[in-house]
């Protein structure tokens, strides 16, 4: 398994498309930062509009923390979309080039082969997220400086810089769980569909429907809490005044369960199916 995993990682970083994905993430990050900077003032004016009669404000709210928070919001759609396209490509390209067959002609078990794929998908996702998170913090603080973070969630909440930083880091950690879920799902879709374009379309559809269902009221407490679309925005809870750690932990574990389930489904189908 370690050998398979190391060759997976070696090949991932020898492919041009990996670098296209990294560049895409950077471009996305830059666009989000620029639009965050341009929109940030407008958002702040809206947030503070009704307080301007009563108060004068001292200090800069359009700072690195707000920019990082706005980049974090890109977790809603953009980052998972890029991740799903790239991660599903790890397998669909092998089906297309028939290298799945070539590897399985060697003394390699199907379980280990597909297991290594899932591991590589998780590691690659973690790498991309680390890259995104580190560069976001770095650029945001370097360019926009430090300061209080204001967010609108159950009212306007202000967090002091060290508090904002720790909440943002935890939110990124929690959001990363969601990204890993999407990565695993996309690989399972690749196992099921095998063909790149079909997998991309279904993955994008999955993401779209999940995002829509997040806001949908199922009329049942259980579904509204534990159906997987409802677990994809757990990271938002890090910005409640009182962080509901227990709920975050429970939801994260349930989402982890969904990820494991998706992976098991993919592994089972891959093992059961003939390589034709």
């Amino acid at each position: 398994m370690r050998n398979l995993l190391s060759t997976e990682l070696f090949r991932i970083f020898r492919q041009r498309k990996t670098y296209y994905a990294i560049i895409a993430v950077f471009i996305l990050e830059a666009i989000i930062m620029i639009s965050a900077y341009m929109q940030g003032r407008e958002i702040l004016d809206l947030f503070l509009e009704n307080l301007t009669d009563t108060f004068e404000f001292n200090g800069n709210l359009l700072n690195g923390n707000l920019i990082v928070y706005l980049v974090l919001n890109s977790f809603w759609f953009h980052i998972p979309l890029i991740l799903m396209v790239v991660v599903s490509g790890f397998l669909t390209s092998e089906y297309q080039d028939r290298t799945v067959e070539a590897v399985l002609l060697q003394p390699v078990s199907k379980l280990k082969f597909i297991g290594a794929k899932y591991m590589a998908a998780l590691l690659f996702t973690a790498f991309m997220l680390a890259l995104l998170i580190v560069t976001t913090f770095l650029f945001a603080y370097l360019v926009f400086g430090d300061g209080d973070l204001v967010v609108y969630l159950e009212g306007l909440s202000f967090f002091e810089p060290h508090e904002a930083f720790s909440r943002l880091v935890w939110a990124f950690a929690s959001g990363s769980g969601t990204m890993l879920f999407y990565a695993v799902v996309s690989l399972t879709l690749a196992v099921l569909l095998r063909e790149a374009t079909a997998t991309w379309i279904v993955a994008a559809l999955f993401l779209l429907v999940t995002t829509l269902l997040l806001r949908f009221d199922f009329g049942s407490e259980g579904l509204n809490t534990y159906f997987f679309p409802k677990l994809t925005d757990t990271w938002q809870a890090l910005f409640y005044v009182e962080v509901p750690w227990d709920a975050i932990l429970t939801k994260s574990l349930v989402l982890l369960g969904y990820s494991a389930l998706a992976a098991l489904l993919g592994i089972a189908v891959f093992i059961k199916r003939d390589i034709t």
């Binding site: 050998n3 020898r14 041009r16 028939r98 070539a102 002609l105 060697q106 390699v108």
Partner: peptide, 25 residues
């Protein structure tokens, strides 16, 4: 074995292909 056409990692060199296929086993 080889089934139909040989399936190779087109973006790797011959030596790299050999080493990758060796490593997986």
């Amino acid at each position: 074995g080889i089934i139909e056409k040989p399936a190779l990692y087109g973006y790797l060199s011959a030596v790299e292909n050999l080493r990758v296929f060796a490593r997986v086993q």
